[in-house]
Nucleic acid binder design. Sequence first.
DNA 1: ATTATTAGTATATTTATTGATACTATAGCA
DNA 2: TGCTATAGTATCAATAAATATACTAATAAT
Lengths: 128, 128
Amino acid sequence: MKSSNNNDARYFSIDKYSCSVEATIDVIGGKWKSVIIYYLLDGKKRFNELKRLNNGITQRMLTLQLRELEADGIIHREVYREVPPKVEYSLTEFGQELRPLILMLKSWGMNNTEKVIENRSKYTNKLK
Amino acid sequence: MKSSNNNDARYFSIDKYSCSVEATIDVIGGKWKSVIIYYLLDGKKRFNELKRLNNGITQRMLTLQLRELEADGIIHREVYREVPPKVEYSLTEFGQELRPLILMLKSWGMNNTEKVIENRSKYTNKLK
DNA sequence: ATTATTAGTATATTTATTGATACTATAGCA
DNA sequence: TGCTATAGTATCAATAAATATACTAATAAT
């Protein structure tokens, strides 16, 4: 889940995992990646389209996250040599294999967020 | 995915999500949570047991993550008033609902980590 | 001539996460 | 008497993630 631009560090770190759950989290974890992948499930998107969809993400963060996903082979970056620039991002075949996982993240969230909010507020009150 | 000890902040932040994928990530994301939940899938565990299983986690981090999972209603904390102290952590019924998701994280990692490592090293070489 | 647009990069700064180390209480054991 | 074990807490330092802001090039529209 590093957002460094030192790809060597990422490369050497992934195989030190003791549990493969960690490896998956390294690929889709962090604040933005799984949401970016979610929006790419229904087809290619341009940079600013993704920026609008991921409410509040900065250009810098979006660029960093997209580069990491690209490095991992999850997304493809297609550059059109036009002015103004046009770059399209899409899931690779490998990235498509994340579909069931991302959809499960989505549906768990839809079904259980209310309950989590409720639990958190109870816990907070108990502490008082 | 905050690890602050300001529970109000967590409470107020979760419902600002534009996509429910974000909400799920907030519950199971971060470096340790999903792995902790994974180890709890096969039954209750004591604090130091979890510490040994989560290779390299510090006591402080383990405590913080467990408290957040408890606040969200994912795990139950059972304190035995003994000396030396004994505390057992287990999944709640609500936490059990994460089982399919965690198992999918596990299997995706098992099936695809090799490929990710390969992709990362190719990408790194391409940059040179 | 000015302004808007796109997909970024560069730089600096703030905030969050993670880690290292030392410390606690009390019972049991040698 | 001193050592071990457990489940932490407290404090401080280091690292990583996230944000804010300004900047770029080239064209097309106003």
